[in-house]
């Protein structure tokens, strides 16, 4: 499973809406759409740090970095030094 699928699966397993209410797309803002609650911000952060063995610095602690599958992957790419 690649990183995007991993992240996506983690978010899907934490949705607070039912599957038929959510058609999660990679650019969807999961917070604005109400797919997750505010407590999920910390849970997601902890998951990313432990699952991908990265340390999120204070200046990266911007909710935009975690608001969609694609934004999370972009942050991980920057952290892990992935070049396009």
């Amino acid at each position: 499973m690649n990183q995007k699928e991993q992240v996506r699966q983690f978010i899907e397993s934490n949705l607070i809406v039912f599957e038929d209410e959510a058609d999660l797309k990679d650019d969807d803002n999961i917070f604005q759409l109400g797919y997750v609650n505010s407590l999920f911000a910390m849970k997601l952060l902890n998951y990313i740090e432990s699952e991908f063995n990265v340390k999120i610095e204070t200046d990266e602690m911007d909710i935009k970095n975690f608001s969609s599958v694609n934004n999370i992957i972009a942050l991980l790419d920057r952290k892990l030094g992935v070049t396009e």
Binding site: S38, L39, A41, M42, L45, T58, D59, M61, D62, I63
Partner: peptide, 17 residues
């Protein structure tokens, strides 16, 4: 504490947890 704008999602959530 933390970065600007992170007060609710991170600091408040951490504190209240």
């Amino acid at each position: 504490l933390g970065n600007e704008g992170g007060g609710f999602a991170y600091i408040v959530n951490t504190a209240l947890d």
